[in-house]
Design a protein around this nucleic acid. Sequence first.
DNA 1: ACGTGTAAGGT
DNA 2: ACCTTACA
Length: 867
Amino acid sequence: MSLRDYELYEEDEEEEVEEHEYGTAEFRIETPRETGVCYLLSVTYSGASGKALLKLYDPSRGIMVFWYDNTGHKPYCLTNLPPSNVLKVPGVASHRGFDHVEEIEKYDLLHDRKVRLTKVVAKDPLSVGGAPNSLRDILRKHGAKVWEAKIRYHNCYIYDRQLIPGMPYRIVEGRLVPVKVHMDEKEVEDVLRLWKDDSPEEREMLREWLPLFQTPVPVIRRVAIDIEVYSPIPDRVPNPKDAKYPVICVAMVSNDGLRRVLVLRRKNVSLGDQSELPQGVEVKFYDDERAMLLELFKVISEYPVVLTFNGDNFDFNYLWHRALQLGFSREQIPIYLTRDSALLHTGVHIDLYRFFGNKSIQVYAFGGKYKETTLDAIAEALLGEGKMVLDRPIPELPIYRLAAYCYRDAELTLGLTMFENDLVMKLIILFMRISKLSMEDLVRQGISGWIKNLFYYEHRKRNYLIPEPDDILSLKGVTVTKAIIKGKKYMGALVMKPKAGVHFNVVVVDFASLYPSVIKQWNLSYETVRCPHEECRSNLVPETSHWVCRKRRGLTALIVGLLRDLRVRLYKKLAKSSSLPEEEREWYDVVQRALKVFINASYGVFGASTFPLYCPPVAESTTAIGRYAIKRTLEKAQELGLEVIYGDTDSLFIKNPPSEKVSNLIKWAEKELKIDLDVDKVYRYVTLSERKKNYLGVLESGSVEIKGLLGKKRNTPEFLKQAFANLIKILAEVRCERDFEEAKDKIRVIVHDCYMRLKNRRYSLEDLAFKMMLSKPLDQYIKSTPQHVKAAQQLVKVGYPVEAGDIIAFVKVKGSTGVKPVQLARIDEIDEEKYLAHIESTFEQVLDALGMSFNEVISGAKLLDFK
DNA sequence: ACGTGTAAGGT
DNA sequence: ACCTTACA
């Protein structure tokens, strides 16, 4: 079946074309009988052979090994019709994809009972779901219930074989055999002792999971690819589907020494200066684009992993269409396209744009270091080096500069997987091991896809029926609290009103991963919250009418609890353990970071309607218990005579506490709530205003933490950030109450200076620019026209392309529109009054807490102005 | 295609 | 009153 045929009747969004040829005449793949240790990277269904095809990385040779599973694994779905009745349904037995039926038993967690079901086995994945008039559709139309038909074949295969992507295997006599790492039994016993208060079930699971984190990750041989395409319109990226213009440059950079650029000779384009290209980069000139692509495809096919930045949407997509136009046959192109990806027959394509665009990666793995998901912004933030700056459009560049530009992009792309000793590759492999997703899927899916697959795997492993979203919802789709924010589904966290002022010696205690701890300790899961048992109804969640099961351990509680405990009890400690060699500590730090990503998202997905195990009462119960825990702790702190000055979600700020009272509180929480409460940090002092989520604290070390203040926000103009930073420097010096008087004088000078420089126009337009991201395309701002959109519209008018995700820099000017993009504004146009107001609100947030008023400071400044 | 709560600046 | 962004 061709791609086109399928797209015509595609209606099932999740399904993709799974059928394609492997090992074409041009690119032979290796399917050995025996191998040494190889790492499982990917599983695909091969339509050509009707079998699962596994891609394994052989580190000893640095190549990909391909292996067909001949054991006859087939796709299937489940139905409640008995086998004989299934055969009687018109169109089933005669269906071209029908294979056979089997009677099986599953455990239905939602109803807490065994069920007898029929497994309807098909010859190919599309016949189960996906295609119109599939077995699934026929059965549903006939009124039967169908389960597990939407799971893609290669994932089913991984579940059924209980494979772990990212783990080592060997092929022995034509069979796939897991390779076990040696684990010292005494060490395992030491670890198990940390779980001594948990059930045997939890300890058993721990034993199974430990190897995922203790097995080493090989260095994977890989190449990064970047291409440049000719375009007659400057700055307009050519459409990959048309692929009308030639590929003019290709850069290939690998981690095993390849540094090569291919360029197409063009008339009327100068060569330029070869020294613009870094030393050691090999340049090959081509007169024939076809020959150039042939060389590119050859290199791609020689590497097990190929990296791009945006290759799914652009580079590989363009190459596929372009190669066809140049007369390549499909068999001569190592690339193939699915609905939203570009994959490789010969290896694994990692599109780093998609991986780094993953919100969880952005926020939890890299602590929000990059905000924009462009190669330039990510590389700048993580590698300290951005893209090459160009002075003219790509088609007009002299050849060597074009080559250098393209080379730099490929080098940065490779660099993103190499910094901190291959951190990103290690993370990817760890995520694969936890989620059980293949490398291709992992780097393209979001956290909800990862968690979904992890949960499905654990269901199949235990012979639990994977529930249908509608069944969860109809049984437990109720919430009983009201959200504070309009339009939200349930109530979230508690934020205390801060006690405004300067507070010295403040101890901050917080619950270590509060929500995951709650999920574990309160046994929360979609099957245990509002479970079917009468006798559990009295086990109520505080502030709600939900109850929790007493009879069965919740699967979510088990999995989330395990991941949390592994991170908190083991890997965070190992990462800091001074008795371990540096290299080992570093690895454990990667492990705890990987776990963090899953843990932090484990609560949110249950409140996301797009998650297939969506269960609002689980999410609602989690936050309700979180509020209960922080409230009880607050009460206890007050009972102990502690002064709590602020708290948010999972933390309490305690002013000048005796240390034994703090440890009493911590012990109490452990005993009474069974949630770990820790001293998070100690502030030399904290300044609080009346505003929540808004404060400045100076740690004992002298480092300053700023939360939520305008001076730190990304959209604040640079001149204000600078002035704010100066203010922070002064505050960091303050050690006691007396120091403040001196500090206040210095602050006056800063504010005054800022004001004067503004008045005398001694800031550049860039310094004055507000930078705001366009969250959607310009034409979708219908309800209102915010300032950054107005500025963007002006840019479009003068022919400057603007799209969603771009950061618009604008200044406030006098006149009716009020704003101009920096590119179009002049310094004498700026609206001084507006800027003064911004100076005021930025500083006020801090001055407030210091007992100073901005007006007093600025009037002093204005007086000085007269002198 | 994780969640809700808060602040601020705008239309 | 509502929209938008950025942050906790």
